[in-house]
Design a protein around this nucleic acid. Structure first.
Lengths: 633, 633
DNA sequence: TTTCTTGACACCTATGTGAGAACC
DNA sequence: AGGGTTCTCACATAGGTGTCAAGA
């Protein structure tokens, strides 16, 4: 499958593209078969326009590009998806199969790009495989710190990315919380969605300044397992993974247990071979089962939709404690996700609309000015769940309608929402250190490694809208680096920090709370938006923050009033609330967005929030397609 | 073994270091045992001072560095060397064993470096293994185009290079002339010397502008074979190479043929494992059998010594046609190279001094102004050897004494000396294309692939001194790239060219002849010296050449007379002499060096000749330690 | 009990070895 | 006939698979 945004150079607005006919929605719930596919189709609509006429930033080199991303082996992915893809996670790390491989086109040949991927939770549910079906089995476990995996070839020129498939076979999945390889840590029996990001930048250090174009292929959704649950999935893996050839039914007595001869599908051989270099071209693009047809993936500036905490089992909507009361008809059960598509009910429809809200950001314009306030406290390492989180799904769906909510984030759920561990792993040479390019006076200091004793300081998030914050918290890592024994960063350690951040930037204001470990005094953090989807008259302001110190400081950044830029940032810092780790510092920044100009609805289409300092880089995309942005009065 | 140049920051001259006491020379030939080792010791003297007080170039970023290079597994290398190392070359490419692995220290941590290696012919001889000894078996076959292998991690920061051993296991040896992988093509039954180069540069595109620091470990000398000749070498490989474990005498009946139990030496296990990433750290530095003692390798700006065409068998000195008339005493023959060390005779001494001339560049200061003229003609693809080359060794040794010689290069020997194929293979992202940095108007055009039908146009080399030119002609390649199926260059093909160039720049003048294939019209080549060892008052002139076209053009570059720079370049082009390939173009440039200032002797210490254009980069180091530079009258 | 996790294991892919036969 | 080359082969390493029994 491939998606071409079809972004005309002077296309004034893409709200039209964002508008999905309501009939599509209603159609969703009227059918019983292949509902997951339909959901995917829904999400294949382009959501936000890529950057066009940037007036001030000059972050995008060269002329505009027009990326087209095509998933390789789409047929195989579909085959898995149709019966509910499972991915094994092991302590030592396991590859994905089918491998995450895409072809990219439409880039600027001479511009450099960074390719990334991450895997975000689809919902807040824990699943179980019962009676050949996947069913919700309760609320999600505390989420692991998410990592953004940078393709080892990054940055490379567009022509190089386009010359061969972009594969991520180096990314491994694990359930080992204390993994030191930089693998992606997932929770078993939870549902996940891989995402692909394209960033036009010639240096990884510039990632925070840059726009993320995110592509989501719904057929890549999977449930992480420690052992296969669905025997059909097992067979499909065996039939297609060359490394599992030893388990194929060759007639010589082996694997007699596996009875049903599955449709062999297109064998996936010759593509999972040993790729030894940073380049990831293994199968050299032959025998691609891609389809560049109408199956367009969802291009996002963010795919946080995937983590909207709504559970997709047919009878449980809110992941309440009675998650097990689903109908258990064992007849001809095959575990297909199509089979447990939600029945057309009002409540599930609401959740689904929430889930696919990025396709329908405009359908909640009746939102009020009521506010939702998330509160956090310091005891985030409690593993008990606060009951307030039980209503998460409800809250989030209600957000769409502008209901006023106040949440007290405590215990695991707070961690779930707020923790943001971020090993920054670079390949040697990938990071060009240019101190002069950053508003910092301290360079090259060392970070402690990622340890269990971390600090998250409470912060206040004043939001008009929010989803689960965790999937937006992506950390950058490159797995291969650690496995090579290469120092994990030019600084010799894992720089990381915690961020409590709104998933989306409201129209008027939001508060970002961040806690940084081991940030050197004198190191200035910075914060920036990527308002590429603001009206063309919009201005983006890189935010020079005041000196960051263990003491408190305050700075304001106001947009140039002569320009019609909509972004205003107010940063305030407060001293670290220290717990166990010394010298821990917390920075709290309030972020305001001030709308200007005529095209206010689209002005909310911020594409990302970027926050960083010399020490660390963070960037997470947002999409008001996912999150209903409600403008304050 | 390791070598530390011990370069004081203000050391005025290193000619003192170049001076070897004559007693060392005479001592050489008075002993019978371990002569090869002594030769190595001789060559371990530092030859040329690294760049110190550069006044004009600013090619070296940051403060001075002080590289120390240590060969890993020196004990193993010695063990092989003592019985005459053989390296198997196969059509599909074969690794070296022991692997080429060094540790580097003394770099500037924050500066970027490029690490390279190449393998140059040691002499002009073909060898045969007869009666358990290696003997000269005639003149060398036509030499293959040499390639400079860029370490895949290049460029990386000094701290990264120093953090782990630098290995070159991706380099493979082959005898396949039409190899498309970028492997190093060697001639079977010929003797070779690997070299290691450190270049301080943050981009491969800057290689031609940069200084090469070359390190030669004489114990790495080897003879290329298609099948092992010396059974002891075979056993040593089996005993130490983990991949050959299957042939070890495990007592269970296998390998009963191999009788003599060799001394097992230090097993080399755990280091030849599958390294899958660009990083080359496999054995993580444990169990290094290195010795940082007095065994210092030869640090060169060039190691062309290694290819001085003198044959080192005891009875044959000049590789004449009667090469087989050596004494064949089979008594206790073990194939050790020590055993065929030259007897202390005047003639062999002369050759040896020639061979180790870089250690004794000053010992020929009685040189006259007589000139040696090499002539070339167009029929370079003849495989017959011209008799004029028979006197090569004699000529070269006589050069040291200033004898006047005129050679007609024809047939294979001309090719041997002049051919210079150069695939430029870069890892993606390794090459940062900065067109504005180069005096070219044509960028990014395509090159044809390396084919057998190539053209070398005659040129005239007016030299006061010369050695075999071929080892100086190094081409840049990165083997892994091609094996990955990655486009071989950002331009999609093999850029290459042929160069007929003097190995060293004479004091007064020399003529560079080069032939370029597929150079676009309008692409301007450039030519440059690295006169780092000129007096500190010297000036280097990047040479803006005139527009290069298929027609003839002429340009002159004169040094700024106001500056005391010694370099003057006169470039003249002439139209290509086409043979089979169309659009072939020849550029012939005359290079003059004009001495200025007071410190004339050292002014000849040019470190390298760099020639390139937008299309291609070439760089080969020179050393007047190797080549006696005789100033014209 | 039930469900999930863990680790040893056989069996693959992919590649690096020298042996030895075939070939020239 | 003999020296050198080329190819296939068995046997290594390294690591990616699911299986299965045992454990939690």
């Amino acid at each position: 499958m491939s998606y071409h945004p079809h972004l005309g150079a002077a296309q004034p607005s893409f709200l039209a593209a964002l508008s999905l006919p309501d009939v599509a929605l209603s159609e969703r719930y009227s059918s019983s078969a292949s509902d997951a596919r339909r959901r995917a189709d829904l999400r294949r609509q382009p959501q936000v326009a890529p950057p066009r006429s940037l007036t001030s930033l000059q972050l995008e080199p060269g002329p505009d590009d027009d990326p087209v991303v095509t998933l390789e082996s789409k047929n195989l992915w579909d085959e898995f998806h149709n019966m509910g893809t499972e991915m094994v996670i092991t302590r030592s790390g396991r590859r994905m199969f089918p491998p995450f491989k895409v072809t990219v086109d439409g880039l600027q040949e001479s511009d450099k790009y960074i390719m990334l991927m991450d895997i975000v939770a689809v919902d807040e549910c824990r699943y179980k495989f019962h009676n050949s079906r996947w069913k919700v089995a309760g609320k999600a476990d505390p989420e692991m710190p998410k990592r953004m995996y940078i393709h080892p070839d990054s940055p490379s020129k567009g022509e190089q990315w386009m010359s061969k498939p972009v594969t991520f076979h180096k990314l491994k999945l694990t359930n080992n919380i204390s993994d030191k390889h930089g693998f992606t840590v997932l929770n078993s029996m939870h549902k996940y969605q891989p995402r692909f990001h394209i960033v036009r930048a010639n240096d990884i250090i510039k990632l925070p300044y840059s726009t993320f174009r995110t592509y989501v292929f719904p057929e890549m959704e999977f449930i992480a397992v420690t052992a296969y649950q669905n025997e059909k999935i097992t067979q499909l893996k065996i039939d297609n993974n060359p490394f599992a050839k030893g388990f194929r039914d060759t007639g010589n007595g082996k694997r007699e247990k596996r009875s049903k001869q599955r449709n062999p599908s297109v064998l996936h051989e010759g593509q999972s071979a040993a790729e030894q270099e940073s380049g990831d071209s293994d199968d050299s693009g032959e025998q691609r089962s891609t389809s560049d047809s109408i199956c367009s993936p969802l291009e996002l500036v963010s795919s946080p939709l995937m983590s909207t905490p709504s559970c997709f089992d047919e009878n449980n909507t809110g992941c309440d404690s009675d998650c097990d009361r689903q109908s258990e008809d064992p007849a001809e059960a095959n575990g297909s996700w199509d089979k447990y598509a939600p029945a057309p009910s009002l409540r599930s429809e609401e959740l689904l609309r929430n889930r696919s809200a990025l396709s329908k950001s405009h359908d909640c314009q009746e939102a009020t000015n009521e506010r939702t306030v998330f509160r956090t406290s310091d005891d985030m390492y409690s593993t008990k769940r606060d009951s307030s989180i039980e209503h998460m799904g409800e809250i989030l769906s209600s957000l769409r309608c502008g209901r006023h909510q106040t949440l007290d984030f405590s215990g695991a759920n707070r961690q779930h929402l707020l923790k943001f561990g971020a090993p920054l792993l670079f390949h040697p040479g990938q990071l060009t250190v240019k101190p002069e390019a950053f508003p910092t006076t301290t360079t090259g200091h060392r970070f402690s490694s990622l340890s269990g004793v971390d600090e998250l300081v409470s912060g206040e998030l004043t939001l008009q809208s929010i989803t689960s914050a965790s999937p937006f918290m992506a950390h950058l890592s490159q797995h291969t680096l650690a496995s090579q024994g290469i120092p994990l960063s030019p600084y010799g350690g894992y720089p990381y920090c915690y961020v409590a951040a709104p998933a989306a930037l409201p129209a008027s204001s939001a508060t970002l709370s961040l806690s940084r470990n081991h940030c050197a005094h004198g190191s200035r953090p910075w914060l920036r938006f990527s308002p590429y989807h603001l009206p063309s008259s919009a201005t983006s302001h890189p935010c020079p923050l005041t000196e960051f110190s263990s003491g408190s400081s305050h700075a304001q950044f106001k947009p140039d009033s002569r320009k019609p830029g909509p972004v205003c940032v107010d940063h305030s810092y407060e001293k670290a609330k220290q717990r166990t780790a010394p010298l821990q510092t917390t920075s709290k920044a309030s972020v305001y967005e001030v709308l200007r100009g005529a095209d206010k609805p689209r002005a909310n289409n911020l594409t990302g929030i970027h926050l960083g300092s010399w020490d660390h880089i963070m960037s997470w995309p947002i999409s008001d397609g996912l999150v209903k942005v409600i403008r304050a009065g």
